[in-house]
Design a protein around this nucleic acid. Structure first.
Length: 353
DNA sequence: GACTCGTGGTG
DNA sequence: TCACCAAGAGT
């Protein structure tokens, strides 16, 4: 048997051979036949997909990616888009700072870099919304540079391959070091995608399919029977529950009173309903005095670090209402629930149940 | 290093 | 039902 610990390039080759047989088709990937014909990945599409894939599943991203690239085929098209259009198109995908930084980045590339993405890690990580993972992923996948990607998949695969029991995030540098030693000089872009595919399909968080894993022989955790319990993570804080009110108002023409949320903070830059703060004991904060009707049902929604229970109130918007800061009237025919972040769309959904 | 920042799928 | 999880970044 070959000694994998001494010859990491043998592991890389084994994984690339597995990848050539099992690579999944994705809208942003260049298939083997196109690749053979000389087609290179489009940096714009790789960048867009990688930003969308941050903490987000491939299944959730696919439709958004298709809509974005159909509407804005190049980075210059995206750079010229209106902020509100981009935020509306991103609605429902979550982590809205990604959309704001996406637009910032597109404008830097279009305005300052002649519409050409940097092809190095250093050039890429200087851009808004591109951190250590995404800079490595773009330079590897789009430009075939030997950078090492370290995402949740790679962390899990490396923790198991080397049977590392120290908890994340502390052990991250060690896992990164393991991953770096395996990154091959040949086909580093395919290799990066291969490790992540391995983590997503074989070396899964629960009940990994070790029996069919291309690295089943060298894997130390499989040898020790600890694969399913790795990687260890430091325990998270429990989520508190917060409460609040939102107020949905329409005028005689059926137009809606809404609010553009400030760029910083939760749901930043997104459209939503006027409402109260969200905390343990909310106080009503209607945008105008009226006989607000209780919808008799509540919105339950869970964010990253708290649960939310919203009471939804409804009233008619008086004629001649003066908009205050951040408020907008959305014309009846311009209103689309799909432009709203999910928690706000849930409140809207209560209107017709 | 510790927080903040969404959403939908899954066991 | 509910905690965990997903191709993390910014502060």
């Amino acid at each position: 048997m070959r000694d994998h610990a001494v010859y990491p390039e043998i592991l890389s080759q084994d994984l690339l051979e597995w990848y050539d047989r099992h690579a999944r088709q994705m809208p942003w990937r260049v298939g083997p036949e196109a690749r053979a014909a000389g087609v290179r990945p489009d940096p714009y599409r790789i960048w867009l997909s990688e930003v969308m894939l941050q903490q987000t599943t491939v299944a959730a991203v696919k439709d958004y990616f298709e809509r974005f690239t159909r509407r804005w085929p190049t980075v210059s098209d995206l750079a010229a888009a209106a902020d509100a259009d981009v935020m509306a198109e991103w609605a429902g995908l979550g982590y809205y700072a990604r959309a704001r930084n996406l637009l910032k980045c597109a404008r830097v590339v279009a305005d300052d870099l002649s519409g050409v993405f940097p092809d190095t890690y250093e050039g890429l990580i200087a851009l808004p919304g591109i951190g250590p993972y995404t800079a490595a992923a773009i330079s590897a996948i789009a430009f075939d540079r030997p950078e090492t990607v370290l995402d949740g998949n790679v962390e899990r695969v490396m923790a198991r391959l080397h049977d590392e029991h120290a908890p994340l995030p502390g052990v991250k540098p060690v896992l990164k070091d393991h991953a770096a030693h395996l990154t091959p000089a040949l086909r580093p872009g395919d290799y990066a995608q291969a490790v992540m595919d391995l983590g997503a399909t074989i070396c899964t968080p629960k009940s990994p399919a070790c029996g069919i894993c291309p690295w089943r022989t060298p894997c130390r955790a499989r040898l020790n029977g600890t694969a399913a319990e790795l990687p260890k993570k430091t325990p998270k804080k429990p989520k508190p529950t917060r409460h609040g009110f939102v107020y949905i108002a329409r005028n005689h023409e059926g137009d809606w009173l809404m609010e553009r949320r400030p760029d910083k903070g939760l749901l930043g830059g997104m459209l939503g309903w006027p409402g109260s703060d969200w905390n343990e004991a909310p106080t009503e904060a209607p945008p105008f005095e009226a006989n607000w009707q209780d919808l008799g049902a509540e919105v339950r929604h869970t964010f990253t670090h708290f649960h939310l229970i919203l009471q939804v109130r409804m009233a008619e918007l008086p004629a001649g209402f003066n908009l205050s800061d951040g408020q907008e009237i959305i014309k009846r025919h311009d209103f689309r629930p799909s432009d709203l972040p999910t928690v706000m769309r849930k409140a809207f959904d209560l209107l017709h149940r």
